[in-house]
Amino acid sequence: MFTYIIKRVIGAFAMLIVISMVTFGIFYVVPQWAGASPEAMASRYVGRAATPETVHLVAERLGFNDPVIVQYGRFVKGLVAGAEYDYGAGVEQCPAPCFGYSFISGQPVWPDLLDRLPVTFSLAIGAAVLWVVGGVSVGVISALRRGSFFDRLSMGTALAGVSLPIFFTGMISLVVFSYALGWTPPGGAYTDFSVNPAQWAYSLLLPWITLAFLFAATYARLTRAGMLETMGEDYIRTARAKGLHEREVVVKHGLRAALTPILTLFGIDFGLLIGGAILTETTYTLPGLGQFAILAIRNQDMPQVMGVVLVAAMFVVVASLIVDLLYAVVDPRVRLS
């Protein structure tokens, strides 16, 4: 078990290194293949109608004139040992892990990421609770009442939930619930949990529901299919023959087994979501990692892109590791080696 975890952690590190190299390559090497000069790359980070001198200075300051390998080395060194940042009037120490400074705003990337993490985490945790509870209960009821009106209605809704993009459902929900009815706060409202938990929940209510709706649909369908399968298993018959109450048969014996594949999916979904719920955060203007990612990409802000990509990748890797460990806990037949 311990060796297994060590192996996985080493593997995860190797993967993060590869991801960072690929991201770096896409950003620096691909434009070079296309013939872009350091100045052409720097021209993204200057103001309107900048003079060639300005562009040249910026290319130099951002280090675009160095070979790519040197630039990558500088990035890795910053991560491991920290870096220095010259802001004109002085020099600032950027302690490890230093993901560098934004090409656009000049802000250090790492504190920004840390600052935005709670927002994304809040969004993900609330939505996850809603979609797991909602999706699984709907799925269970649908499976137990297969073919009923409830089953057909909920599975139809689930199909819609999977198909409708969040920027559509999100915008509609804002227009209806926030602007027409005034029940929920407008887009962009976010209060930190530490400031006011009630306000926190209120400001996230609509994003939670919208995001949960999208995921709940998948979970409902999956739970239903899993329940239909497990409820036909021999051990369910055994449980009934023991004289167990039907509720316990369904929950303790049926659902317990049906939830295992859902656990896997949940781990990956949640990991991805912590890495940034891009569409939800963009639609509702939530200052989380997803919004950060989309802005970084739109601005071609390399250090920010790198930072958010690595953090997101780390969450996915960690989530899948946790899922694998949990799997062994949930299903005693699974042994890790």
Partner: peptide, 20 residues
């Protein structure tokens, strides 16, 4: 009454016992 007054032994004990 099930399990108490009347009980049953099933055919395939591997699939008839809950694996978890």
């Amino acid at each position: 009454l099930r399990g108490k007054k009347m009980a049953m032994i099933f055919q395939d004990p591997l699939s008839s016992m809950h694996p978890y």
